[in-house]
Simulated assay, not measured.
Amino acid sequence: MHENLDELKDLDVEMYIVSNDSPDEQLELYNQLNEVFGQSLPFVSDPELELIDFMGMKNVDVAYRGYGMIDEDGKVIFNTKNDHWGEQFEHTVEKIKKEYNSLK
């Protein structure tokens, strides 16, 4: 999470964190993110890595860190594997907005 997550609010998208963590682990992380940053995103539980695999983000038995986008028809628009996407948030926002605008 990043304090500039609001930079994506002008996009008509639903944002989620997808992980194979247990619901209890996800709740703990959600609460930590909310406490540190004043906000968090909803988590999607994917214990079998099915959505993560569909997104092209599966790395054997774990998920790559990164981000991606699925359109309203369920088509993967893009994915980006990047352990440092949060530290490079300005670049992350630019890429997401570019991909989003290419849908119009």
Rank of each mutant, 00 (worst) to 15 (best):
H2M: 03
H2A: 04
L5D: 03
D6M: 02
D6I: 08
D6G: 06
L8G: 03
K9Y: 05
D10A: 04
L11W: 04
L11D: 09
Y16E: 11
Y16C: 03
I17A: 15
I17P: 07
V18E: 05
S19C: 02
S19F: 04
S19D: 01
N20L: 06
N20G: 14
D21P: 02
P23T: 11
E25C: 01
L27N: 09
L27H: 03
E28V: 01
L29G: 01
Y30C: 01
N31L: 11
Q32P: 00
Q32K: 14
L33H: 13
E35N: 03
V36T: 10
V36H: 08
V36E: 07
V36W: 09
V36R: 07
F37D: 09
S40C: 06
L41H: 05
L41C: 05
P42F: 03
P42R: 04
F43H: 14
V44Y: 07
S45M: 06
S45G: 10
S45F: 06
D46R: 14
E48S: 04
L49Q: 15
E50K: 12
I52C: 07
I52G: 06
I52Q: 03
D53F: 04
D53K: 15
F54A: 02
M55S: 10
M55D: 05
G56Y: 02
G56I: 04
G56H: 05
M57I: 14
K58M: 05
K58T: 08
N59H: 04
D61V: 07
V62C: 03
R65S: 12
G66I: 07
G66S: 01
G68M: 06
G68T: 12
I70G: 04
D71I: 01
D71F: 01
D71T: 00
G74E: 02
K75L: 07
K75M: 02
V76Y: 13
V76R: 14
I77E: 08
F78G: 00
F78Q: 01
N79P: 04
T80Q: 15
T80K: 13
K81S: 02
N82H: 10
H84R: 11
W85I: 00
W85F: 07
G86D: 07
G86A: 03
E87L: 02
H91K: 10
H91E: 06
V93G: 12
V93S: 10
V93C: 08
E94R: 12
K95D: 14
K95P: 07
K95S: 10
K95N: 15
K98A: 09
K98G: 02
E99P: 00
Y100E: 09
N101I: 06
S102K: 15
S102C: 10
K104S: 13
K104G: 06
